[in-house]
Design a protein around this nucleic acid. Structure first.
Length: 357
DNA sequence: ATCATTTGACCATG
DNA sequence: CATGGTCAAATGAT
């Protein structure tokens, strides 16, 4: 069996290496003079490599798991109007029996994203979902309040996804976004479109000029910017509920496009976002000096929820909260200068913003 | 008028 | 009891 593992890690390595090389090539083709097709081609190749690598991980890592990763083939329509998670639509009956306080079997994960308001790039990007703010609270020991959002389709579609947004104390340009629950609403498919659009826009922006569309109103960005999945971030999975056995590092992301219909931009952005996620969570990167939390683990599971797709991530209950503590902040270090030393180390500072900005 | 945000109060939890 | 999370009335925006 060791052989198998070996073989797989070899495959993995070679795929990753290939991806690396391709990425390098892509970098060289980032000049406006380079043809769009070339870039597209390279991107596709990269994605392909990653997919292979990932699927190899999938097969190798968790055999005894309840599910492979074929869930993405399921059409989202299956839960169009009834969230599979909210059995008894508890939304009305909040006062009901609190007796069984199921710790909300909702997955929870945190992302940290840097807002670069200087460049006008990290504008008011959404994450493709529409949220409604329902509260704000000052948090003890924190300099900035925490905002609470819920999916605006909660009423219509019973979507229970929520998120919390809070400015990082150390670096106010960083927002910590904690998502709870997945979207059961039909917005999910829009995500990719939105992201793709965003990317395109950025490209355009980059090419032409930058217009100071947004100045720093200091407070304003927070509510809006909040969370573009592909933004700088680390993903910290928290409530993974690994009470029992493994269920731990859980790879489940679409290796297949959801609707194989409009597979152009969608895949593109989707895959990019995902790889970004994964990279983010895999990178022990820079242990922020800010975090006084002595040790951080260097390996965090890539818990891909992919927004409404992977509804299999079943969470039992337990507080695994601090296992995975991703590096909190992107340091002020010269990453900004595209320090893409794409070496196959876990530090891989993969950040599409750097590519597209 | 409708919809979203703000904000203090209320509630659950540890 | 302190804290974090949510509700809902008031307020603001469109």
């Amino acid at each position: 069996m060791e052989k198998t593992i070996h073989w797989e890690s070899k495959t993995l390595l070679s795929e990753l290496n290939q991806g690396k090389e391709l990425a390098k090539q892509l970098m060289n083709h980032l000049h406006p003079s380079s043809s769009h097709e070339t870039r597209e081609f390279l991107v596709e190749k990269i994605l392909s490599s990653y997919e292979k690598a990932l699927s190899s991980l999938n097969w190798g890592a968790h055999v005894g798991e309840p599910k492979p990763s074929s869930n993405l083939l399921e059409s989202p329509s299956s839960f169009a109007n009834g969230s599979p998670w909210s059995e008894g639509s508890d939304q009305d009956s909040k006062h009901k029996d609190v007796s069984k306080k199921r710790k909300t079997l909702m997955p929870r994960w945190t992302e940290q994203m840097k807002v670069r308001s200087g460049t006008g790039l990290e504008g008011p990007l959404g994450d493709g979902y529409s949220w409604r703010k329902y509260g704000q609270k000052d948090i003890l020991g924190a300099n900035f309040p925490r905002s609470y959002y819920r999916c605006s389709h909660r009423h219509g579609q019973g979507c229970l996804a929520t998120k919390q947004v809070q400015k990082s104390e150390e670096d106010p340009t960083i927002f910590e976004v904690t998502y709870k629950g997945r979207h059961t609403c039909s917005q999910a498919s829009r995500l990719n479109m939105a992201a793709a659009t965003v990317i395109e826009e950025r490209l355009k922006e980059k090419k032409s000029h930058f217009h100071p569309q947004q100045r720093q109103h200091e407070e304003k960005p927070l509510e809006e910017i909040v969370s573009m999945p592909g933004a700088g971030l680390m993903v910290k999975t928290e409530d993974l509920d690994t009470r029992e056995d493994d269920v731990f590092p859980y790879f489940s992301f679409p290796t297949t496009p959801i609707g194989s219909e409009n597979v152009d931009n969608n895949i593109f952005s989707e895959a990019i976002l995902e790889s970004n996620f994964c990279m983010g969570s895999l990178s022990p990167t820079f242990i922020s000096p800010a975090t006084s939390d002595s040790n951080m683990f260097s390996l965090s599971p890539c818990h891909m929820n992919s927004y409404g797709l992977g509804h299999n991530v079943q969470t039992s209950e337990s507080d695994l909260t601090d296992i995975i503590s991703a590096p909190t902040s992107v340091p002020n270090s010269p990453i900004g200068n595209l320090d893409l030393s794409l070496d196959l180390d876990p530090d891989f500072p993969f950040d599409i913003r750097e590519f597209f900005s």
